[in-house]
Design a protein around this nucleic acid. Structure first.
Lengths: 377, 377
DNA sequence: TCCATCGGTGAATCTACCA
DNA sequence: CTGGTAGATTCACCGATGG
């Protein structure tokens, strides 16, 4: 089965037919991953353990200088163990990722450098590192370091060739029409969102805010995609997936966390269609050949095209090419030639005279696309 | 020789006896490091090649060509080759570090994970990862990723037992009496600060802003400390070291960069004693000031602040505190002191002389706030 | 003199599809 | 696989120019 078929299947969700499904699997992450079919998930979000054992082993009171040098074996052994664990789960995850899938991993300086290096070693392709800046971080108690006010997320595709999902236009539209940056400012998870048990104690020590996961999913999944969280914890990824109409497989080895997650999921409603509809990206719109503009009579052979300043003229020909002086070629090539540029989008460069003044020929393409959309495939 | 002796020697700088010295060594970093005495430097700042792995050319939407970092020194055959290079220079650097020394390494997602993991493997102890957020990064021209708006710095001590330098009190006093966070917002190096050759071309493709290095040195060195930069480049570390009364050894293998650095150093003046004197590191000590205004150059260290009636004068210092006669502290505390009041808003109390007359320093804060507000969260 | 406009540029792993 | 072509894509700041 080719990747394009997988992609098409996953993305063909008709509005009003929300078939998204979320489940929490109780078990060891690597063992459970091996039971899942290969190439079956669109996105992975992973919040792996920071290896507290490592910190315990390495953190000791100040010692004399002479002793300081020869503790390297312990350190090496502990880091080795963490690396082996990281390689194991990342390899297992990679198997179940579709060719065009991507992964997000979150961590702190204790573990993220090892995770990042191993991601690269395994063939993942880093797309961005994204910094989660916390509005309200825990202060540094002893005044010996900077307030640890951020965590790092690595966003990587399965391979350098992956055609990963990135909802650029939607993100930009929701951000004052500015590109989203690699530093995100969000509050930590507190208050009513934080899961508590009957005694009011927090259920999970590192519950992530839903806003963080929501931005991850909105940026790099389509509706109906399948999300995998191999360290599901309190179930935030599954909960946000359900709300946003994404399917989710969460794996969690702690029965209490798994139970809390399932209870949590019952209280989550999927947002209505209108709230989930994706804005169409220009680059995903169906292609229109300039010749079809001529064929449909929206422009007649012999018509004159001009640039926006009316300094350059070109002649429309019957075969869908245009003539710029002695040169003949596509609207793009002739636009590039007119500007002495390497490339040009002819649809926006060339204009035609109308009663309302100069109008880019892209208007004609939009007209054809509207007509095409009205015809059932 | 014990670490305390080393420490005392390095730190016993009498005011008025500035013996700081900066030199640029022309040569290969590892070969030159081997010539330096062991355990001789207090801080390392390293800006190693990032191993960008760029493919083709990139144009902006207006068809202009992006001047990419495709220099020979950034080319590595593989991750393995980059790792071997990283291990080699970090090991050589570690030998010349004093037992209590620390290191800063800056990088991007291309290399920083490998650097961080190798730092840990070699026995360094990570203290923080600090994010340099750029308020004016290059956008993502193709709309395929998040704007790469930050770089990552790792701050690590030579070993877990190192008694590293951290000027907590001064930093806090210079930051509105708040602990300094792990995310720093600073502009990239442009304008007059950027070194240009006779044709107006940039001398170095990746020159770092002085404000960034200044914050690094103000946070983790004492006056008179020796700073090492094994990839000295355009000499920013040496220049800032000189300005702040720190000694510096810069190693650079490119003769043109080395020559430009030496010329640059000649134009740098060490700040006067009053601006560099350290406040006592006691919790009861008067704290104060507004370091980002100073870092951004909106006020220079040594500048004079006055109250609205010009009856009181204070001196701006490099670490963002101010001096009022014999007292040193934050703008708020010194304002209260000047008025014999319990509390004071230093931003409105203190003024500066401008061509338009007296102006409260709050104007400068407003200026910075406008810049910050322009950045989407 | 001041303001508006315009051109230049910065550590960048920056396309998709068909023949 | 390679090669050719359609066609999509930018933000903040600095300095020069011009009215």
């Amino acid at each position: 089965m080719s990747s394009s078929v997988l992609r098409t299947q996953a993305r063909s969700i008709a509005p009003g037919m929300d078939i998204s499904e979320q489940r929490i699997i109780l078990g060891d992450c690597i063992a459970e991953l091996e039971k899942l079919p290969a190439a079956s998930v669109d996105l992975v979000f992973a919040d792996p353990p920071y290896n507290l054992q490592l910190q315990g082993t390495l953190h000791r009171p100040d010692q004399s200088l002479v002793d300081a040098v020869d503790d390297e074996w312990d350190q090496f052994a502990s880091f080795e163990a963490y690396d082996a664990f990281t390689r194991a789960w990342l390899s297992a995850v990679r198997r179940v990722m579709k060719p065009n899938a991507a992964i997000w991993v979150i961590g702190s300086y204790h573990n993220i450098f090892r995770v990042g290096a191993i991601l690269q070693d395994l063939g993942f392709w880093i797309l961005n590192d994204v910094v989660w800046r916390k509005n309200n971080p825990m202060p540094n108690f002893r005044g010996r370091r900077f307030t640890n006010a951020h965590e790092t997320m690595i966003w990587a595709s399965r391979s350098p060739e992956s055609k990963y999902t990135f909802n650029y236009e939607a993100l930009k539209a929701g951000n004052e029409d500015l590109q989203l940056r690699s530093d995100w400012l969000l509050p930590i998870c507190t208050g009513g969102e934080r899961l508590k048990d009957k005694e009011g104690k927090k259920v999970h020590p590192t519950q992530k805010p839903e806003a963080l996961i929501a931005r991850v999913l909105m940026s790099s999944t389509k509706r109906g995609d399948t999300v995998l969280d191999p360290f599901s914890g309190s179930g935030t990824t599954a909960a946000v997936s359900k709300r946003l109409g994404r399917s989710c497989i969460g794996i969690e080895r702690d029965p209490e966390y798994a139970a809390a997650s399932r209870a949590r999921l019952k209280g989550v409603e999927t947002l209505p269609d209108e709230a989930l509809a994706e804005i169409p990206a220009k680059r995903e719109a169906p292609r229109v050949a300039f010749s079809s503009v001529v064929e449909r009579g929206l422009l007649s052979p012999g018509a004159i095209l001009v640039d926006s300043k009316k300094k350059v003229q070109a002649l429309v020909r019957a075969d869908g090419t245009i003539a710029l002086g002695p040169s003949v070629g596509s609207i793009h090539k002739m636009g590039a030639l007119a500007q002495n540029a390497e490339a040009c989008n002819g649809w926006t460069y060339w204009h035609m005279e109308t009663e309302q003044g100069l109008s880019p020929i892209d208007r004609l393409r939009e007209q054809i696309r509207i007509e095409m959309a009205a015809i059932p495939a």
